[in-house]
């Protein structure tokens, strides 16, 4: 029983973080149609900036996170301007190659600046354990779940209530019609990349709290692809559900059957889902009126 609770809490924490990371990916794909293979590296950079803010600059972690958000906004806009905008109108495969290249550049940049040693994220949230139903587990997992859910809720509110959020969804729906509404599509594209990078600051920091600050953060980010394909590339609820499915199955299978299998199971789930629902669980179904 205690193993079960532990695995469940771990799985939920992983899942919530994955959902947050996947949100950034879905955002970019929905608004701009670009498959961003550098989303894992966005997590990596987010984690390192926050780490450097706290450890190197000695900032309070709240300030460090704000710094991370500011850097992310700038990075997102710069990447959109300099890397993606020249690619408008090019084939999807060319754009994918560019984001793969981007991921290599960002990864090398991080390694060039901070090296490859594993570092501990300073204690942002309490590292103590509490026991629940006889099972001890670290409090930071609960924090991770809470922070990820609050962030997801914040983004959901933004998309429903803010006119910028509505404009972003309008661009995702019909770009030319959005232009006719006076919406600046370029600005929305830049905003999507900036928001994706911001969501990665939260996601990356939470990952780093659990597994430490190293290149492994980006590797964890690879799971994002399993999440978004399971949930549907363009669905925000799909990202949430996909995150929880992948997070939980990974823990259960890894804990009860075999840790190695746990690493592979996300991709097995992925294939199974694709067999039944080729566009993912919540993938866009074109609305057809009868």
């Amino acid at each position: 029983m205690s193993t079960f609770i532990q695995l469940t809490v771990n799985g939920l924490a992983n899942g919530a973080i994955l959902a947050l990371a996947a949100l950034g990916f879905v955002l970019i794909f929905k608004a701009t149609g670009v498959v961003n293979f550098a989303q894992g590296e966005f997590l990596l950079i987010g984690a390192y900036i926050v780490w450097a803010g706290v450890v190197t600059l000695g900032l309070h972690w709240v300030v460090a996170v704000l710094l991370g958000v500011a850097v992310a906004v700038v990075m997102g806009i710069v990447i959109e301007r300099s890397v993606l905008r020249p690619m408008v109108g090019e084939s999807a495969i060319a754009v994918i190659m560019v984001t793969i290249g981007l991921s290599a550049v960002l990864r090398s940049l991080v390694q060039g600046i901070w090296g490859t040693t594993l570092r501990r994220m300073p204690e942002i949230v309490p590292e103590t354990s509490v026991s629940l139903l006889g099972a001890p587990f670290p409090v930071n997992r609960l924090w991770a779940i809470g922070i990820a859910l609050v962030a997801l809720g914040g983004f959901a509110l933004f998309f429903r209530k803010s006119h910028y959020g509505v404009a972003m969804r309008a661009v995702a729906d019909d770009q030319q019609a959005a232009m006719v509404m006076g919406i600046s599509v370029r600005r929305i594209f830049a905003m999507s990349w900036a928001l994706a990078a911001v969501s990665a600051v939260f996601g990356g920091t939470l990952v780093a709290i659990m597994i430490g600050v190293s290149i492994e953060v980006a590797t964890f980010g690879l799971l994002v692809f399993a999440v978004v394909i399971v949930g549907g590339l363009d669905s925000i609820p799909g990202a949430l559900l996909g995150g929880l499915i992948i997070g939980l199955t990974r823990q259960y299978v890894g804990g009860y059957i075999d840790p190695g299998l746990g690493e592979v199971i996300p991709y097995i789930v992925l294939v199974l889902v694709l067999l039944v629902k080729p566009y993912g669980l919540f993938g866009e179904v074109r609305i057809e009126r009868v």
């Binding site: 309008a170 995702a172 006719v180």
Partner: peptide, 10 residues
């Protein structure tokens, strides 16, 4: 625009 072009998912 021609063909109405409403934002279908909004």
């Amino acid at each position: 625009m021609e063909g109405r072009r409403v934002f279908e998912h909004l």
